[in-house]
Design a protein around this nucleic acid. Structure first.
Length: 288
DNA sequence: TTATGTCTGCTCATTACTTCA
DNA sequence: GATGAAGTAATGAGCAGACAT
């Protein structure tokens, strides 16, 4: 089988899949996959998933032994989109026995025989996909790019994909996931800060409450000692605020002022119950 | 100018798989 | 070897902006 035959095989595979290998994974993906699902649900979903995936580590290691072992594989690469030249994709296909065979004829025939659901990451029981694991080098380059800019324009995406032998879609997904992880970490860190802030405010609130309590008790003591000098008969309890009210009621002193907390509490004592011009500070007419 | 449909790229929630303790 | 947790690649739904008609 020559190079042209191989490319035809791939081309046919592409047509057989009924998918646009370049576009399908990128921006058309949702609409296309929806259309495909409607047209041919099981086939398209499985084909879509298969084509985005690579092998597990074990599979990679195992398949490394046979990668590039034939010129046929290399000739395929020349006719494939960049992403299909990646080791992962290669090894996905090398899961099939056909790749292991030296004969070009066998290669071609076997490839065409491989059921779509078995290419790559679906086993004979049509078990779900396997997941590609990016290499350390790929991750480092992606991280490096992410540090420079957390989003990519299409050109950057494609360039990076080419550089890393990945599909543009994979680069896009990596950036999406990376942004999500960054945001999650930021949220967690914000949450931690808020938590500490809340704790310190609670602590401060406790202190202030305690201080207030102390001030109140001090005030009561001070007031009591003050009223000790006043004949007990002149002391009353304000029914409204329930504090001790003192002073004479002969009108010479307009009121007694008590400090409660930081507020000034004025007690105006009515000189004459018949004095209608007098305004009670408290709503209760019985006040002081 | 406005209304409508399509494309594109994003976020978000979730699933599925891998790795590690 | 089995198992659960954590990490992460991948998927699908939905949204919004740009653009064409």
């Amino acid at each position: 089988m020559n190079v042209d035959d191989t490319s035809n095989t791939w081309f046919q595979l592409d047509l057989d899949l009924g998918l646009a290998l370049h576009d399908h994974f990128d921006d058309h993906r949702k609409r296309e996959s929806k259309k495909k699902r409607v047209e041919n649900p099981s086939k398209c979903i499985k084909a879509y998933q298969m084509l985005t995936l690579g092998p597990s580590k074990e599979e990679s290691e195992e398949n490394t032994k046979i990668q590039h072992s034939t010129s046929k594989t290399e000739s395929c690469d020349q006719n494939l989109p960049t992403q299909f030249t990646s080791p992962s994709i290669e090894s996905s296909f090398s899961n099939s026995t056909s790749i292991k065979k030296e004969s070009g004829e066998e290669f071609e025939v076997e490839i065409e025989k491989v059921p779509i659901t078995r290419i790559g990451n679906f086993d004979k029981d049509c078990n779900p996909r396997k997941k590609l694991r990016l290499t350390k080098e790929q991750s480092e380059v992606l991280e490096e790019n992410f540090r420079e800019h957390s989003t990519l324009n299409p050109k950057q995406k494609q360039a990076l994909a080419n550089k890393l032998n990945l599909q543009a879609r994979q680069v896009e997904v990596w950036f999406q996931n990376r942004r999500a992880r960054t945001k999650l970490k930021q949220t967690e860190s914000d949450c931690e800060v808020l938590k500490k802030c809340c704790e310190s405010l609670t602590e401060e609130n406790k202190k202030l409450q305690k201080e207030l309590q102390e001030l109140k008790s001090m005030q009561t003591v001070a007031a009591a000692s003050f009223y000790m000098k006043i004949p007990a008969a002149t002391l009353t309890i304000c029914p409204s605020c329930e504090t001790i009210c003192g002073g004479n009621n002969n009108g010479s002193l307009p009121s007694t002022t008590l400090l409660i907390g930081s507020k000034t509490h004025h007690h105006f004592h009515k000189n004459n119950k018949n004095d209608d011009n007098y305004q009670f500070p408290h709503s209760s007419s019985a006040a002081c």
